[in-house]
């Protein structure tokens, strides 16, 4: 009787110990993962790093990047200046693109044309593109709102 009871008690203790042990690990894991800051840095809508290095962008070209859930356009002018604008056409919200041969920013939907200062110069767009601020920090280009 005695050894049976003690082995039974041992089993219960084992069950309890492993149950609580596993639970501690199982609960600690999400917490630890939670504490590690995510790659995207912080919850911000005001500025965003652009995924290209300044050197890899050639003059007279433009690229679309993601600014929150909206597109932005980073332009390197033929003179080598970096400029950034919201890439949302002010006419009907299409995404604009850079045209190397005409050196302008162009919306394909209705042939809206902006100059390299973002000013609407032809076609239906009523307003200039919203300008962003471009900062180059070493190898990184950071575009921020409120230029």
């Amino acid at each position: 009787m005695e050894p049976l009871a003690s082995s039974r008690r041992g089993f219960v203790n084992f069950l309890l110990g492993s149950g609580f042990g596993a639970m501690a690990v199982w609960m600690l894991y999400p917490v630890l993962r939670y504490l590690i800051p995510p790659k995207s840095g912080e919850a911000t809508i005001a500025s965003v790093p652009v995924p290209w290095k300044p050197a890899e962008i050639k003059a007279n070209s433009g690229r679309i990047f993601k600014f929150g859930s909206q597109p932005g356009i980073l332009v390197k002018t033929p003179a080598g200046d970096l400029r950034a604008f919201a890439a949302t056409c002010t006419h009907l919200n299409c995404t604009v693109q850079y045209r190397e041969e005409k050196q302008d920013i162009w919306c394909a939907c209705h042939n809206g044309i902006y100059d390299l200062n973002g000013k609407n110069v032809s076609g239906p767009p009523p307003r200039p593109l919203e300008p962003y601020k471009v900062n180059v920090k070493g190898d990184q280009i950071v575009v921020s709102k409120g230029a």
Partner: peptide
């Protein structure tokens, strides 16, 4: 479901302990 399983193990342990 995994976590519920683990919690269940702990609960079973507790119940057995209480009965003991």
């Amino acid at each position: 479901w995994i976590s519920v399983g683990i919690i269940l193990v702990a609960i079973v342990g507790l119940v057995l302990k209480i009965r003991e």
